[in-house]
Design a protein around this nucleic acid. Sequence first.
DNA 1: GTTGACCCTCCGGTGGCCGGAGGGTGCAAG
DNA 2: CTTGCACCCTCCGGCCACCGGAGGGTCAAC
Lengths: 275, 275
Amino acid sequence: MWDMTASVTIGEFSRLTHLSVKTLHHYHDIDLLAPALVDPSSGYRRYEIAQVPTAQLIRRLRELQMPLAQVRAVIDAPDIATRDEAVRLHLVQMERELVRTQQAVASLRSMLTLAPTELPVEYRFVPAFRAYGVRERVHRDDISAWCENVFTRLGALAGRYGISAVPGAAYSDEFFADEAGEVTAFLPVAPDQPADESVDLIDLPAGLFAVALHRGSFEELDRAYGALGSHVAEFCEIAPGPVRELYVVGPGDSTDSSTFQTELCWPIQQLPTRG
Amino acid sequence: MWDMTASVTIGEFSRLTHLSVKTLHHYHDIDLLAPALVDPSSGYRRYEIAQVPTAQLIRRLRELQMPLAQVRAVIDAPDIATRDEAVRLHLVQMERELVRTQQAVASLRSMLTLAPTELPVEYRFVPAFRAYGVRERVHRDDISAWCENVFTRLGALAGRYGISAVPGAAYSDEFFADEAGEVTAFLPVAPDQPADESVDLIDLPAGLFAVALHRGSFEELDRAYGALGSHVAEFCEIAPGPVRELYVVGPGDSTDSSTFQTELCWPIQQLPTRG
DNA sequence: GTTGACCCTCCGGTGGCCGGAGGGTGCAAG
DNA sequence: CTTGCACCCTCCGGCCACCGGAGGGTCAAC
Protein backbone atom coordinates (compact mmCIF):
# COMPACT_ATOMS: atom_id res chain seq x y z
CA MET A 1 0.00 0.00 0.00
CA TRP A 2 2.86 2.40 -0.69
CA ASP A 3 1.24 3.84 -3.70
CA MET A 4 -2.38 4.32 -2.79
CA THR A 5 -2.76 7.07 -5.35
CA ALA A 6 -1.58 5.00 -8.29
CA SER A 7 -3.00 6.73 -11.33
CA VAL A 8 -3.86 5.42 -14.75
CA THR A 9 -4.58 6.88 -18.17
CA ILE A 10 -8.10 7.19 -19.47
CA GLY A 11 -7.66 4.12 -21.63
CA GLU A 12 -6.56 2.00 -18.69
CA PHE A 13 -9.34 3.38 -16.55
CA SER A 14 -11.76 2.47 -19.30
CA ARG A 15 -10.57 -1.13 -19.14
CA LEU A 16 -10.91 -1.16 -15.35
CA THR A 17 -14.45 0.14 -15.38
CA HIS A 18 -15.83 -0.91 -18.76
CA LEU A 19 -16.87 2.66 -19.37
CA SER A 20 -15.95 3.80 -22.86
CA VAL A 21 -13.48 6.63 -23.29
CA LYS A 22 -16.22 8.74 -24.82
CA THR A 23 -18.36 8.14 -21.79
CA LEU A 24 -15.55 9.11 -19.44
CA HIS A 25 -15.01 12.31 -21.45
CA HIS A 26 -18.69 13.02 -21.10
CA TYR A 27 -18.68 12.41 -17.35
CA HIS A 28 -15.74 14.75 -17.08
CA ASP A 29 -17.49 17.42 -19.16
CA ILE A 30 -20.53 17.38 -16.96
CA ASP A 31 -18.35 17.08 -13.88
CA LEU A 32 -19.89 13.84 -12.74
CA LEU A 33 -16.64 11.90 -12.56
CA ALA A 34 -13.64 14.15 -13.03
CA PRO A 35 -10.17 12.64 -13.35
CA ALA A 36 -7.99 13.09 -10.29
CA LEU A 37 -5.48 15.00 -12.36
CA VAL A 38 -5.30 16.73 -15.71
CA ASP A 39 -1.88 17.48 -17.16
CA PRO A 40 -2.01 21.24 -17.78
CA SER A 41 0.27 21.11 -20.81
CA SER A 42 -1.00 18.07 -22.67
CA GLY A 43 -4.54 17.91 -21.30
CA TYR A 44 -4.07 14.20 -20.60
CA ARG A 45 -6.41 12.87 -17.93
CA ARG A 46 -5.19 10.70 -15.07
CA TYR A 47 -7.56 8.69 -12.94
CA GLU A 48 -6.81 7.19 -9.57
CA ILE A 49 -7.43 3.60 -8.65
CA ALA A 50 -9.59 4.81 -5.80
CA GLN A 51 -12.04 6.16 -8.39
CA VAL A 52 -12.83 2.72 -9.73
CA PRO A 53 -15.59 1.87 -7.23
CA THR A 54 -17.32 5.18 -7.91
CA ALA A 55 -17.12 4.62 -11.64
CA GLN A 56 -18.55 1.14 -11.24
CA LEU A 57 -21.38 2.40 -9.14
CA ILE A 58 -22.20 4.94 -11.82
CA ARG A 59 -22.12 2.19 -14.39
CA ARG A 60 -24.53 0.07 -12.39
CA LEU A 61 -26.93 2.92 -11.86
CA ARG A 62 -26.85 3.78 -15.55
CA GLU A 63 -27.62 0.15 -16.34
CA LEU A 64 -30.77 0.68 -14.32
CA GLN A 65 -31.60 3.58 -16.64
CA MET A 66 -31.11 6.06 -13.87
CA PRO A 67 -30.77 9.58 -15.33
CA LEU A 68 -27.38 11.16 -14.75
CA ALA A 69 -28.92 13.86 -12.59
CA GLN A 70 -30.10 11.23 -10.16
CA VAL A 71 -26.83 9.36 -10.41
CA ARG A 72 -25.11 12.54 -9.39
CA ALA A 73 -27.42 12.83 -6.41
CA VAL A 74 -26.54 9.30 -5.39
CA ILE A 75 -22.79 9.59 -5.58
CA ASP A 76 -22.79 13.04 -4.01
CA ALA A 77 -24.96 11.79 -1.15
CA PRO A 78 -23.39 12.72 2.19
CA ASP A 79 -23.99 9.34 3.79
CA ILE A 80 -24.99 5.83 2.93
CA ALA A 81 -28.52 6.24 4.22
CA THR A 82 -29.21 9.13 1.83
CA ARG A 83 -27.59 7.20 -0.97
CA ASP A 84 -29.66 4.15 -0.21
CA GLU A 85 -32.83 6.20 -0.13
CA ALA A 86 -32.13 7.73 -3.53
CA VAL A 87 -31.61 4.30 -5.03
CA ARG A 88 -34.69 2.89 -3.37
CA LEU A 89 -36.70 5.74 -4.85
CA HIS A 90 -35.48 4.93 -8.29
CA LEU A 91 -36.33 1.28 -7.86
CA VAL A 92 -39.87 2.23 -6.94
CA GLN A 93 -40.08 4.23 -10.14
CA MET A 94 -38.78 1.30 -12.10
CA GLU A 95 -41.35 -0.97 -10.52
CA ARG A 96 -44.12 1.38 -11.58
CA GLU A 97 -42.72 1.45 -15.05
CA LEU A 98 -42.77 -2.32 -15.02
CA VAL A 99 -46.42 -2.49 -14.00
CA ARG A 100 -47.27 -0.05 -16.75
CA THR A 101 -45.43 -2.22 -19.22
CA GLN A 102 -47.24 -5.34 -18.13
CA GLN A 103 -50.57 -3.62 -18.54
CA ALA A 104 -49.60 -2.42 -21.98
CA VAL A 105 -48.67 -5.95 -22.94
CA ALA A 106 -51.96 -7.28 -21.65
CA SER A 107 -54.00 -4.93 -23.77
CA LEU A 108 -51.86 -5.25 -26.83
CA ARG A 109 -52.96 -8.55 -28.23
CA SER A 110 -56.48 -7.43 -29.01
CA MET A 111 -55.21 -4.40 -30.88
CA LEU A 112 -53.01 -6.32 -33.23
CA THR A 113 -55.83 -6.95 -35.63
CA LEU A 114 -56.30 -3.20 -36.18
CA ALA A 115 -60.05 -3.71 -35.88
CA PRO A 116 -61.66 -0.61 -34.47
CA THR A 117 -62.96 -0.93 -30.92
CA GLU A 118 -66.74 -0.73 -30.70
CA LEU A 119 -68.75 0.38 -27.73
CA PRO A 120 -72.27 1.66 -27.16
CA VAL A 121 -72.70 5.40 -27.22
CA GLU A 122 -75.52 7.38 -25.66
CA TYR A 123 -76.29 11.09 -25.70
CA ARG A 124 -76.86 13.24 -22.70
CA PHE A 125 -77.55 16.86 -21.96
CA VAL A 126 -75.73 17.82 -18.78
CA PRO A 127 -76.98 20.98 -17.05
CA ALA A 128 -74.55 23.38 -15.47
CA PHE A 129 -73.50 22.42 -11.95
CA ARG A 130 -71.32 23.58 -9.13
CA ALA A 131 -68.44 21.51 -7.77
CA TYR A 132 -65.55 21.43 -5.44
CA GLY A 133 -62.62 21.37 -7.77
CA VAL A 134 -59.10 22.16 -8.72
CA ARG A 135 -58.19 23.71 -12.03
CA GLU A 136 -54.56 23.73 -13.09
CA ARG A 137 -52.24 23.49 -16.01
CA VAL A 138 -50.84 19.96 -15.77
CA HIS A 139 -48.18 18.22 -17.78
CA ARG A 140 -49.14 14.87 -19.25
CA ASP A 141 -46.28 13.10 -17.53
CA ASP A 142 -47.53 14.36 -14.18
CA ILE A 143 -51.21 13.66 -14.65
CA SER A 144 -51.47 10.48 -12.60
CA ALA A 145 -49.62 11.95 -9.63
CA TRP A 146 -51.71 15.09 -9.89
CA CYS A 147 -54.96 13.14 -9.98
CA GLU A 148 -53.94 10.98 -7.07
CA ASN A 149 -53.27 14.07 -5.03
CA VAL A 150 -56.36 16.01 -6.04
CA PHE A 151 -58.86 13.18 -5.82
CA THR A 152 -57.59 12.19 -2.42
CA ARG A 153 -58.41 15.71 -1.27
CA LEU A 154 -61.80 15.66 -2.99
CA GLY A 155 -62.49 12.24 -1.50
CA ALA A 156 -61.83 13.60 1.97
CA LEU A 157 -64.31 16.40 1.33
CA ALA A 158 -66.88 13.94 0.06
CA GLY A 159 -66.55 12.06 3.33
CA ARG A 160 -66.70 15.17 5.49
CA TYR A 161 -69.80 16.60 3.81
CA GLY A 162 -71.47 13.31 2.95
CA ILE A 163 -71.33 13.95 -0.80
CA SER A 164 -72.15 10.93 -2.90
CA ALA A 165 -71.80 12.48 -6.36
CA VAL A 166 -69.49 10.90 -8.90
CA PRO A 167 -66.22 12.81 -9.24
CA GLY A 168 -64.79 13.64 -12.60
CA ALA A 169 -62.33 15.71 -14.54
CA ALA A 170 -62.37 17.90 -17.62
CA TYR A 171 -59.39 17.86 -19.95
CA SER A 172 -58.79 20.78 -22.27
CA ASP A 173 -58.04 20.05 -25.90
CA GLU A 174 -54.63 21.55 -25.32
CA PHE A 175 -53.86 18.85 -22.77
CA PHE A 176 -53.93 16.20 -25.48
CA ALA A 177 -52.69 18.22 -28.43
CA ASP A 178 -49.69 19.67 -26.63
CA GLU A 179 -47.89 18.03 -23.81
CA ALA A 180 -49.64 20.01 -21.13
CA GLY A 181 -52.92 21.79 -20.64
CA GLU A 182 -55.64 22.81 -18.28
CA VAL A 183 -57.24 20.04 -16.28
CA THR A 184 -60.20 20.52 -13.96
CA ALA A 185 -60.89 17.87 -11.36
CA PHE A 186 -64.33 18.21 -9.86
CA LEU A 187 -66.70 16.78 -7.29
CA PRO A 188 -70.28 18.00 -7.91
CA VAL A 189 -71.99 19.65 -4.96
CA ALA A 190 -75.28 21.46 -4.25
CA PRO A 191 -75.43 25.11 -5.38
CA ASP A 192 -75.44 26.28 -1.76
CA GLN A 193 -72.46 24.21 -0.67
CA PRO A 194 -70.10 26.24 1.55
CA ALA A 195 -66.60 27.03 0.31
CA ASP A 196 -63.68 25.02 1.57
CA GLU A 197 -60.16 26.28 1.84
CA SER A 198 -58.48 23.18 0.46
CA VAL A 199 -60.10 23.43 -2.97
CA ASP A 200 -62.05 25.89 -5.10
CA LEU A 201 -65.73 26.14 -5.90
CA ILE A 202 -66.06 25.83 -9.63
CA ASP A 203 -69.06 26.18 -11.91
CA LEU A 204 -69.10 23.80 -14.79
CA PRO A 205 -71.04 24.81 -17.87
CA ALA A 206 -73.91 22.85 -19.33
CA GLY A 207 -73.33 20.87 -22.46
CA LEU A 208 -74.47 18.19 -24.83
CA PHE A 209 -72.30 15.10 -24.73
CA ALA A 210 -71.83 11.80 -26.43
CA VAL A 211 -71.17 9.38 -23.60
CA ALA A 212 -69.52 5.97 -23.48
CA LEU A 213 -68.72 3.78 -20.50
CA HIS A 214 -65.28 2.28 -20.29
CA ARG A 215 -64.81 -0.73 -18.01
CA GLY A 216 -61.26 -1.48 -16.97
CA SER A 217 -58.05 0.26 -16.04
CA PHE A 218 -57.15 3.78 -17.09
CA GLU A 219 -54.33 2.36 -19.17
CA GLU A 220 -56.91 1.28 -21.70
CA LEU A 221 -58.96 4.43 -21.68
CA ASP A 222 -57.41 5.51 -24.92
CA ARG A 223 -59.32 2.79 -26.72
CA ALA A 224 -62.59 4.21 -25.46
CA TYR A 225 -61.43 7.64 -26.54
CA GLY A 226 -60.75 6.31 -29.99
CA ALA A 227 -64.06 4.51 -30.21
CA LEU A 228 -66.18 7.34 -28.87
CA GLY A 229 -64.29 10.03 -30.75
CA SER A 230 -64.58 8.09 -33.99
CA HIS A 231 -68.27 7.69 -33.44
CA VAL A 232 -68.73 11.36 -32.77
CA ALA A 233 -66.65 12.38 -35.77
CA GLU A 234 -68.71 10.10 -37.96
CA PHE A 235 -72.23 10.71 -36.76
CA CYS A 236 -72.33 13.98 -34.87
CA GLU A 237 -70.35 17.12 -34.99
CA ILE A 238 -67.51 17.63 -32.56
CA ALA A 239 -67.95 20.67 -30.36
CA PRO A 240 -64.96 22.49 -28.98
CA GLY A 241 -64.36 22.32 -25.27
CA PRO A 242 -62.95 19.91 -22.76
CA VAL A 243 -63.71 16.21 -22.72
CA ARG A 244 -65.01 15.05 -19.35
CA GLU A 245 -64.26 11.83 -17.57
CA LEU A 246 -66.58 10.65 -14.79
CA TYR A 247 -65.03 8.19 -12.38
CA VAL A 248 -68.09 6.06 -11.68
CA VAL A 249 -65.96 3.37 -10.11
CA GLY A 250 -62.42 4.53 -9.56
CA PRO A 251 -59.44 4.17 -7.25
CA GLY A 252 -61.53 5.60 -4.42
CA ASP A 253 -64.07 2.81 -4.74
CA SER A 254 -62.05 -0.25 -5.64
CA THR A 255 -58.45 -1.37 -5.56
CA ASP A 256 -58.88 -3.65 -8.55
CA SER A 257 -58.38 -1.50 -11.60
CA SER A 258 -60.12 -4.06 -13.81
CA THR A 259 -63.41 -3.20 -12.09
CA PHE A 260 -63.09 0.53 -12.75
CA GLN A 261 -65.86 2.23 -14.68
CA THR A 262 -65.23 5.51 -16.37
CA GLU A 263 -67.74 7.50 -18.32
CA LEU A 264 -66.29 9.45 -21.17
CA CYS A 265 -68.24 12.56 -22.15
CA TRP A 266 -67.39 14.06 -25.51
CA PRO A 267 -68.86 17.48 -26.25
CA ILE A 268 -71.00 17.57 -29.39
CA GLN A 269 -72.85 20.29 -31.28
CA GLN A 270 -76.14 18.51 -31.68
CA LEU A 271 -77.70 15.09 -31.66
CA PRO A 272 -76.70 12.77 -34.47
CA THR A 273 -78.25 13.57 -37.79
CA ARG A 274 -77.82 10.05 -39.09
CA GLY A 275 -77.32 6.53 -37.73
CA MET B 1 -72.05 3.99 -42.34
CA TRP B 2 -72.52 6.40 -45.23
CA ASP B 3 -69.45 8.31 -44.46
CA MET B 4 -66.82 5.70 -43.73
CA THR B 5 -64.09 8.09 -44.74
CA ALA B 6 -65.05 10.83 -42.32
CA SER B 7 -61.94 12.87 -41.84
CA VAL B 8 -60.78 15.02 -38.97
CA THR B 9 -58.19 17.71 -38.39
CA ILE B 10 -54.93 16.95 -36.69
CA GLY B 11 -56.17 18.42 -33.43
CA GLU B 12 -59.25 16.23 -33.44
CA PHE B 13 -57.20 13.21 -34.37
CA SER B 14 -54.90 14.03 -31.51
CA ARG B 15 -57.85 13.90 -29.12
CA LEU B 16 -58.98 10.60 -30.59
CA THR B 17 -55.63 8.94 -30.22
CA HIS B 18 -53.94 10.80 -27.38
CA LEU B 19 -50.96 11.39 -29.57
CA SER B 20 -49.72 14.96 -29.37
CA VAL B 21 -49.81 17.14 -32.48
CA LYS B 22 -46.03 17.29 -32.43
CA THR B 23 -45.90 13.54 -32.39
CA LEU B 24 -48.32 13.29 -35.32
CA HIS B 25 -46.19 15.78 -37.24
CA HIS B 26 -43.19 13.63 -36.52
CA TYR B 27 -44.90 10.44 -37.62
CA HIS B 28 -45.88 12.20 -40.83
CA ASP B 29 -42.33 13.44 -41.39
CA ILE B 30 -40.90 9.97 -41.11
CA ASP B 31 -43.84 8.56 -43.04
CA LEU B 32 -44.92 6.22 -40.30
CA LEU B 33 -48.46 7.50 -40.09
CA ALA B 34 -49.28 9.88 -42.91
CA PRO B 35 -52.57 11.74 -42.92
CA ALA B 36 -55.06 10.48 -45.46
CA LEU B 37 -55.11 13.88 -47.12
CA VAL B 38 -53.06 17.02 -47.16
CA ASP B 39 -54.64 20.18 -48.49
CA PRO B 40 -52.22 21.28 -51.20
CA SER B 41 -52.87 24.98 -50.71
CA SER B 42 -52.96 25.31 -46.95
CA GLY B 43 -50.91 22.26 -45.99
CA TYR B 44 -53.59 21.27 -43.49
CA ARG B 45 -53.57 17.58 -42.63
CA ARG B 46 -56.73 15.49 -42.59
CA TYR B 47 -56.86 12.11 -40.92
CA GLU B 48 -59.49 9.47 -41.45
CA ILE B 49 -61.37 7.75 -38.68
CA ALA B 50 -60.13 4.46 -40.03
CA GLN B 51 -56.61 5.51 -39.05
CA VAL B 52 -57.46 5.61 -35.37
CA PRO B 53 -56.80 1.93 -34.64
CA THR B 54 -53.42 2.13 -36.35
CA ALA B 55 -52.51 5.21 -34.37
CA GLN B 56 -53.53 3.53 -31.17
CA LEU B 57 -51.50 0.48 -31.94
CA ILE B 58 -48.48 2.70 -32.54
CA ARG B 59 -49.15 4.40 -29.25
CA ARG B 60 -49.27 1.10 -27.42
CA LEU B 61 -46.09 -0.16 -28.99
CA ARG B 62 -44.31 3.08 -28.15
CA GLU B 63 -45.46 2.70 -24.56
CA LEU B 64 -43.58 -0.56 -24.60
CA GLN B 65 -40.49 1.41 -25.62
CA MET B 66 -40.48 -0.18 -29.03
CA PRO B 67 -38.24 1.80 -31.39
CA LEU B 68 -40.09 3.40 -34.28
CA ALA B 69 -38.23 1.24 -36.77
CA GLN B 70 -39.72 -1.85 -35.19
CA VAL B 71 -43.11 -0.21 -34.88
CA ARG B 72 -42.99 0.41 -38.59
CA ALA B 73 -42.21 -3.24 -39.17
CA VAL B 74 -45.21 -4.23 -37.08
CA ILE B 75 -47.76 -1.99 -38.72
CA ASP B 76 -46.41 -2.73 -42.19
CA ALA B 77 -46.55 -6.47 -41.52
CA PRO B 78 -48.46 -8.21 -44.32
CA ASP B 79 -50.52 -10.43 -42.00
CA ILE B 80 -51.41 -10.86 -38.39
CA ALA B 81 -49.05 -13.77 -37.87
CA THR B 82 -46.05 -11.67 -38.93
CA ARG B 83 -47.28 -8.81 -36.82
CA ASP B 84 -47.72 -11.06 -33.84
CA GLU B 85 -44.27 -12.49 -34.27
CA ALA B 86 -42.67 -9.06 -34.35
CA VAL B 87 -44.42 -8.10 -31.15
CA ARG B 88 -43.54 -11.37 -29.46
CA LEU B 89 -39.91 -10.77 -30.35
CA HIS B 90 -39.99 -7.41 -28.73
CA LEU B 91 -41.56 -8.82 -25.61
CA VAL B 92 -38.77 -11.38 -25.36
CA GLN B 93 -36.27 -8.53 -25.57
CA MET B 94 -38.12 -6.68 -22.86
CA GLU B 95 -38.10 -9.75 -20.68
CA ARG B 96 -34.34 -10.02 -21.06
CA GLU B 97 -34.00 -6.41 -20.20
CA LEU B 98 -36.02 -7.07 -17.10
CA VAL B 99 -33.80 -9.94 -15.99
CA ARG B 100 -30.76 -7.76 -16.54
CA THR B 101 -32.35 -5.08 -14.43
CA GLN B 102 -33.10 -7.46 -11.63
CA GLN B 103 -29.52 -8.67 -11.63
CA ALA B 104 -28.25 -5.13 -11.57
CA VAL B 105 -30.46 -4.38 -8.61
CA ALA B 106 -29.22 -7.46 -6.82
CA SER B 107 -25.60 -6.49 -7.14
CA LEU B 108 -26.19 -2.86 -6.40
CA ARG B 109 -26.60 -2.91 -2.67
CA SER B 110 -23.08 -4.10 -1.99
CA MET B 111 -21.65 -1.36 -4.17
CA LEU B 112 -23.36 1.46 -2.39
CA THR B 113 -20.63 1.72 0.20
CA LEU B 114 -18.08 2.51 -2.53
CA ALA B 115 -15.69 0.06 -0.89
CA PRO B 116 -13.38 -1.46 -3.49
CA THR B 117 -14.01 -5.11 -4.27
CA GLU B 118 -11.17 -7.39 -3.18
CA LEU B 119 -10.28 -10.71 -4.63
CA PRO B 120 -7.17 -12.95 -4.65
CA VAL B 121 -4.82 -12.50 -7.57
CA GLU B 122 -2.29 -14.99 -8.86
CA TYR B 123 0.28 -14.76 -11.62
CA ARG B 124 0.65 -17.12 -14.48
CA PHE B 125 2.80 -17.48 -17.54
CA VAL B 126 0.70 -18.86 -20.37
CA PRO B 127 2.64 -20.42 -23.27
CA ALA B 128 1.47 -19.91 -26.82
CA PHE B 129 -1.22 -22.33 -27.92
CA ARG B 130 -3.37 -23.20 -30.88
CA ALA B 131 -7.14 -23.05 -30.80
CA TYR B 132 -10.30 -23.32 -32.78
CA GLY B 133 -11.54 -19.81 -32.79
CA VAL B 134 -13.38 -16.91 -34.32
CA ARG B 135 -11.90 -13.45 -34.51
CA GLU B 136 -14.15 -10.57 -35.39
CA ARG B 137 -14.86 -6.94 -34.78
CA VAL B 138 -17.87 -6.98 -32.46
CA HIS B 139 -19.97 -4.17 -31.13
CA ARG B 140 -20.47 -4.11 -27.38
CA ASP B 141 -24.23 -4.22 -27.71
CA ASP B 142 -23.96 -7.39 -29.74
CA ILE B 143 -21.42 -9.21 -27.62
CA SER B 144 -23.73 -11.55 -25.79
CA ALA B 145 -25.53 -12.64 -28.94
CA TRP B 146 -22.18 -13.07 -30.66
CA CYS B 147 -20.78 -15.16 -27.82
CA GLU B 148 -23.85 -17.33 -27.67
CA ASN B 149 -23.52 -18.06 -31.35
CA VAL B 150 -19.77 -18.64 -31.39
CA PHE B 151 -19.52 -20.70 -28.22
CA THR B 152 -22.36 -22.91 -29.34
CA ARG B 153 -20.32 -23.69 -32.45
CA LEU B 154 -17.15 -24.22 -30.44
CA GLY B 155 -19.06 -26.41 -27.98
CA ALA B 156 -20.22 -28.59 -30.85
CA LEU B 157 -16.63 -29.00 -31.99
CA ALA B 158 -15.53 -29.83 -28.45
CA GLY B 159 -18.08 -32.62 -28.44
CA ARG B 160 -17.18 -33.92 -31.88
CA TYR B 161 -13.43 -34.05 -31.23
CA GLY B 162 -13.60 -34.84 -27.51
CA ILE B 163 -11.86 -31.63 -26.51
CA SER B 164 -12.02 -30.92 -22.79
CA ALA B 165 -10.07 -27.66 -22.73
CA VAL B 166 -11.60 -24.58 -21.16
CA PRO B 167 -12.88 -22.14 -23.79
CA GLY B 168 -12.15 -18.45 -23.54
CA ALA B 169 -12.09 -15.15 -25.33
CA ALA B 170 -9.63 -12.30 -25.77
CA TYR B 171 -10.96 -8.76 -25.82
CA SER B 172 -8.92 -6.03 -27.45
CA ASP B 173 -8.41 -2.78 -25.56
CA GLU B 174 -10.39 -1.09 -28.28
CA PHE B 175 -13.42 -3.18 -27.41
CA PHE B 176 -13.70 -1.50 -24.04
CA ALA B 177 -12.38 1.95 -24.89
CA ASP B 178 -14.54 2.40 -27.95
CA GLU B 179 -17.90 0.84 -28.47
CA ALA B 180 -16.60 -1.95 -30.64
CA GLY B 181 -13.38 -3.87 -31.13
CA GLU B 182 -11.77 -7.14 -32.01
CA VAL B 183 -12.86 -10.13 -30.00
CA THR B 184 -11.32 -13.59 -30.31
CA ALA B 185 -13.28 -16.53 -28.99
CA PHE B 186 -11.16 -19.63 -28.67
CA LEU B 187 -11.18 -23.30 -27.72
CA PRO B 188 -7.62 -24.58 -27.18
CA VAL B 189 -6.64 -27.65 -29.19
CA ALA B 190 -3.51 -29.75 -29.78
CA PRO B 191 -1.03 -28.28 -32.27
CA ASP B 192 -1.82 -31.02 -34.81
CA GLN B 193 -5.59 -30.59 -34.64
CA PRO B 194 -7.14 -30.69 -38.13
CA ALA B 195 -8.82 -27.60 -39.50
CA ASP B 196 -12.58 -27.33 -39.44
CA GLU B 197 -14.63 -25.38 -41.88
CA SER B 198 -16.98 -23.83 -39.34
CA VAL B 199 -14.26 -21.93 -37.48
CA ASP B 200 -10.65 -20.86 -37.89
CA LEU B 201 -7.45 -22.25 -36.43
CA ILE B 202 -5.86 -19.45 -34.44
CA ASP B 203 -2.53 -19.24 -32.66
CA LEU B 204 -2.63 -17.34 -29.44
CA PRO B 205 0.59 -15.75 -28.25
CA ALA B 206 2.28 -16.54 -24.95
CA GLY B 207 2.02 -14.01 -22.17
CA LEU B 208 2.38 -13.21 -18.52
CA PHE B 209 -0.93 -12.61 -16.80
CA ALA B 210 -2.36 -11.54 -13.51
CA VAL B 211 -5.30 -13.87 -12.97
CA ALA B 212 -8.38 -13.64 -10.79
CA LEU B 213 -11.33 -15.98 -10.55
CA HIS B 214 -14.81 -14.50 -10.67
CA ARG B 215 -17.66 -16.60 -9.33
CA GLY B 216 -21.11 -15.55 -10.44
CA SER B 217 -22.94 -14.21 -13.45
CA PHE B 218 -21.31 -12.25 -16.24
CA GLU B 219 -23.32 -9.23 -15.21
CA GLU B 220 -20.98 -8.79 -12.27
CA LEU B 221 -17.79 -9.45 -14.14
CA ASP B 222 -17.06 -5.75 -14.19
CA ARG B 223 -16.38 -5.84 -10.48
CA ALA B 224 -13.69 -8.45 -10.99
CA TYR B 225 -12.29 -6.32 -13.79
CA GLY B 226 -12.11 -3.38 -11.45
CA ALA B 227 -10.53 -5.36 -8.65
CA LEU B 228 -7.98 -7.15 -10.82
CA GLY B 229 -7.18 -4.11 -12.90
CA SER B 230 -6.70 -1.98 -9.84
CA HIS B 231 -4.39 -4.57 -8.38
CA VAL B 232 -2.37 -4.71 -11.55
CA ALA B 233 -2.17 -0.94 -11.86
CA GLU B 234 -0.95 -0.71 -8.29
CA PHE B 235 1.50 -3.58 -8.01
CA CYS B 236 2.58 -4.63 -11.49
CA GLU B 237 2.82 -2.87 -14.78
CA ILE B 238 0.02 -3.13 -17.27
CA ALA B 239 1.09 -4.65 -20.56
CA PRO B 240 -0.70 -3.77 -23.77
CA GLY B 241 -2.72 -6.46 -25.42
CA PRO B 242 -6.08 -8.10 -25.01
CA VAL B 243 -7.52 -9.22 -21.71
CA ARG B 244 -8.53 -12.86 -21.72
CA GLU B 245 -11.51 -14.46 -20.10
CA LEU B 246 -11.55 -18.21 -19.47
CA TYR B 247 -14.99 -19.70 -19.05
CA VAL B 248 -14.13 -22.38 -16.46
CA VAL B 249 -17.79 -22.91 -15.70
CA GLY B 250 -20.02 -21.18 -18.18
CA PRO B 251 -23.36 -21.43 -19.95
CA GLY B 252 -22.17 -24.65 -21.60
CA ASP B 253 -21.65 -26.30 -18.22
CA SER B 254 -24.45 -24.95 -16.06
CA THR B 255 -27.75 -23.20 -16.47
CA ASP B 256 -27.45 -21.41 -13.15
CA SER B 257 -25.45 -18.29 -13.80
CA SER B 258 -24.65 -17.92 -10.11
CA THR B 259 -22.42 -21.00 -10.35
CA PHE B 260 -20.40 -19.67 -13.26
CA GLN B 261 -16.65 -19.35 -12.82
CA THR B 262 -14.68 -17.06 -15.04
CA GLU B 263 -10.95 -16.56 -14.93
CA LEU B 264 -9.84 -13.08 -15.84
CA CYS B 265 -6.34 -12.85 -17.28
CA TRP B 266 -4.83 -9.39 -17.39
CA PRO B 267 -1.61 -9.02 -19.36
CA ILE B 268 1.31 -7.67 -17.31
CA GLN B 269 4.89 -6.71 -18.09
CA GLN B 270 6.56 -8.53 -15.23
CA LEU B 271 5.89 -10.05 -11.84
CA PRO B 272 5.02 -7.58 -9.10
CA THR B 273 7.96 -5.68 -7.72
CA ARG B 274 6.25 -4.93 -4.45
CA GLY B 275 3.40 -6.27 -2.31
C1' DG C 1 -63.25 43.15 -40.75
C1' DT C 2 -61.64 41.49 -36.79
C1' DT C 3 -61.11 38.12 -33.36
C1' DG C 4 -59.44 33.90 -31.86
C1' DA C 5 -58.78 29.14 -32.41
C1' DC C 6 -56.48 26.41 -35.11
C1' DC C 7 -52.95 25.10 -38.44
C1' DC C 8 -48.39 25.33 -40.92
C1' DT C 9 -43.01 25.15 -41.22
C1' DC C 10 -38.59 25.77 -39.42
C1' DC C 11 -35.09 25.91 -35.97
C1' DG C 12 -33.07 24.66 -31.83
C1' DG C 13 -32.85 21.87 -27.79
C1' DT C 14 -33.15 17.56 -24.74
C1' DG C 15 -30.27 13.25 -22.75
C1' DG C 16 -26.49 10.29 -23.10
C1' DC C 17 -23.73 9.50 -25.47
C1' DC C 18 -21.15 7.77 -30.58
C1' DG C 19 -18.30 8.61 -34.63
C1' DG C 20 -14.97 10.89 -36.95
C1' DA C 21 -11.82 14.75 -38.28
C1' DG C 22 -7.74 17.03 -37.31
C1' DG C 23 -4.01 17.37 -34.54
C1' DG C 24 -0.80 16.82 -30.26
C1' DT C 25 1.98 13.43 -27.04
C1' DG C 26 4.92 9.73 -25.36
C1' DC C 27 7.79 6.05 -25.92
C1' DA C 28 10.45 2.55 -28.33
C1' DA C 29 12.83 0.81 -32.41
C1' DG C 30 15.66 1.63 -36.19
C1' DC D 1 17.50 11.57 -34.32
C1' DT D 2 13.97 10.43 -36.81
C1' DT D 3 10.20 7.49 -37.57
C1' DG D 4 6.37 5.02 -36.26
C1' DC D 5 2.68 3.96 -33.69
C1' DA D 6 -0.45 3.87 -29.99
C1' DC D 7 -2.55 6.77 -27.38
C1' DC D 8 -4.47 11.16 -26.11
C1' DC D 9 -6.79 15.75 -26.91
C1' DT D 10 -10.80 18.95 -28.62
C1' DC D 11 -14.50 20.05 -31.51
C1' DC D 12 -18.42 19.21 -34.34
C1' DG D 13 -22.18 16.75 -35.97
C1' DG D 14 -25.34 13.00 -35.48
C1' DC D 15 -28.55 9.63 -33.23
C1' DC D 16 -33.59 8.96 -31.27
C1' DA D 17 -38.20 10.58 -30.43
C1' DC D 18 -39.75 13.98 -29.94
C1' DC D 19 -40.75 19.22 -27.26
C1' DG D 20 -40.96 24.19 -27.31
C1' DG D 21 -41.35 28.32 -29.45
C1' DA D 22 -41.09 31.82 -33.22
C1' DG D 23 -43.17 33.59 -37.09
C1' DG D 24 -46.79 33.39 -39.95
C1' DG D 25 -50.99 31.46 -42.68
C1' DT D 26 -56.18 29.71 -42.42
C1' DC D 27 -60.90 29.37 -41.18
C1' DA D 28 -65.24 30.18 -39.17
C1' DA D 29 -67.88 33.10 -36.34
C1' DC D 30 -69.38 37.52 -34.89
